[in-house]
């Protein structure tokens, strides 16, 4: 994971902890990965594994009782952890932006569509020229397939798909380098979702913006992403090129995931991600590798020591003892699940 021209974000040993009444929840645990310029990186994993937390952490948007408890984030080579409030505000919007799951609630209900966009520009640019701003907003909105007359509408007058496009527009209007889409298409119906996914792909081509697509829908990721990161219980367990991972999943969790999808193009979301065993409780995560209680190939070492993130082939990272050596490693598997 060397830093070079094509790397946009470098995340190193990032941890996020929520301090709850039941004790600390380690929602993101010592994660390292990169995001390249203009790439679409899919982040998949079952709900509760820490995807949204990771997305928010990249923007330094973890609110109490949560806290980034360790690690570093370099964005365009700048250390995001060192940003003061003013710098952060500038960073959010101009360099990074986020689209949320529920299009019904992510726009201010008493503000018109154009007011949202114009506000974003006014807040971030010094003395913007009024004419110029309006023409930019119009061009952008049209590019996103929203009619100009919709600019004077209130959010509730738009369909869910249109609202998400407005959110994308808000991310693009200041030429952000990275847009994080957190389950952005999940609440839309299948056809609208497909259209939005197409549009995201086009936008990447046209604007050169990188996308972090957070989803629990692995079929969706297969359609759009260049690389995927599979997350389990606060850890990225496998990371690599989408084709390589789908052709030859290495981590037992990834294998399970892909097996549970009979056809990649299946859209019956209910059927996705059924795997034996319970997702772990992050207040008291399992010792060693967090996946070991559900792992069909667990070995004695797995419950004692967590593996590291290992690059098994160029660009292909796996977090599993099956592909790493350790003096205490002993190949006999233990049967955990029937």
């Amino acid at each position: 994971m060397n830093s070079d021209e094509k790397t946009l974000v470098q995340v190193r040993n990032l941890s996020v902890t929520y301090h709850t009444r039941l004790g600390p929840v380690s929602a993101v645990n010592d994660i390292s990965f990169d995001i390249n310029r203009s790439e679409i990186l899919g982040l998949v994993g079952e709900s509760g594994c820490g995807k949204s937390t990771l997305g928010k952490a990249l923007m330094r948007m973890i609110m109490p009782p949560g806290e980034i408890s360790g690690g570093s984030i370099l964005f365009n080579g700048k250390d995001v952890m060192q940003f003061d409030q003013k710098r952060l505000r500038d960073f959010r919007g101009r360099q990074i932006s986020m689209i949320f799951q529920d299009p019904m609630t992510s726009l201010n209900p008493v503000q018109r569509v154009d007011e949202h966009v114009i506000e974003a520009i006014q807040v971030h640019e010094e003395k913007p020229d009024k004419e110029d701003v309006i023409s930019r907003v119009k061009a952008l909105i049209e590019r996103l397939g929203i009619q100009e007359r919709r600019l004077r509408d209130y959010p509730h007058q738009l369909s869910g798909g249109m609202r998400q496009r407005v959110m994308i527009g808000l991310g693009l209007v200041l030429n952000a380098d990275l847009i994080i889409a957190d389950e952005a298409t999940t609440s839309l119906d299948v056809i609208v979702e497909a259209m939005l996914v197409d549009q995201l792909r086009e936008i990447r081509e046209e604007f050169g913006v990188a996308l972090l697509m957070i989803t629990h829908n692995i079929a969706l990721v297969a359609e759009i992403a260049d690389r995927i990161a599979v997350m389990y219980a606060g850890k990225i367990v496998e990371l690599g090129d989408i084709k390589e991972i789908f052709d030859n999943p290495l981590h037992p969790y990834t294998r399970g995931l892909l097996r549970s999808v009979p056809s990649i193009r299946l859209d019956d979301r209910e059927e996705l991600f059924k795997m034996s065993g319970e997702p772990p409780n992050l207040t008291h995560p399992p010792s060693g590798c967090r996946f070991h209680p559900r792992c069909p190939e667990a070995m004695p070492i797995c419950s004692r020591i967590g593996p590291g993130m290992d690059e098994v082939s160029p660009g292909r990272w796996v977090h599993c003892w099956l592909y790493q050596d350790h003096p205490q490693k002993d190949r006999s598997t233990i049967k955990v699940n029937a």
């Binding site: 923007m59 948007m61 952060l88 505000r89 500038d90 960073f91 959010r92 919007g93 101009r94 932006s97 986020m98 949320f100 529920d102 609630t105 992510s106 726009l107 201010n108 209900p109 506000e119 974003a120 807040v123 971030h124 959110m167 808000l170 991310g171 200041l174």
Partner: peptide, 17 residues
């Protein structure tokens, strides 16, 4: 705690606003 506040924060709107 509404989503549109979080979304506004995510696009860098100042806190007093």
């Amino acid at each position: 705690q509404a989503d549109f506040i979080t979304a506004g924060r995510a696009r860098g709107l100042p806190e007093p606003r």
